[in-house]
Amino acid sequence: MNPQLTNPRADEIDAILKRLPFAQTLGMRCEVLGDEMTAILPFQEKLIGNVAIRALHGGAIASFLELTAMLQVFLISDMPRPPKPINLTIDYLRQGHAKDLYARAYVLKMGRRMASVRAEAWQENRAEPVTALMAHFLVAAE
């Protein structure tokens, strides 16, 4: 429980991350201020994909971005549980170095059935994203 959190959903996001085995495997966490959320993936050796150039694995970055996008939809909605992904496109823009990674997601459209979300991950410089993701989620319960 973080007393600074202004969004009651923030505690739920914290709880989801703690309960979700895959989020724990990745080792990610989220900081929420109002409706804004920054996801943090601290660097760990296990996230490496290429030992020779010490680059983060694209799959680890994609997993991190997918979770960030999913949680952002959850944060701004009143859904009982996080939405299910329909599809996603990942653009690998730059090499992910052996350093912490940050991400933010923007819900471009929150529809009744679907949500369109864009997410970006960066390291030192937010203006130079490492990876960008575009995803669609199913938000209707049905």
């Binding site: 895959f22 799959g59 997993s63 990942i90």
Partner: peptide, 11 residues
């Protein structure tokens, strides 16, 4: 299992 695992696998 999480979609990210399938992404890693197929990638």
């Amino acid at each position: 299992i999480h979609g990210g695992v399938i992404t890693t696998f197929l990638d």
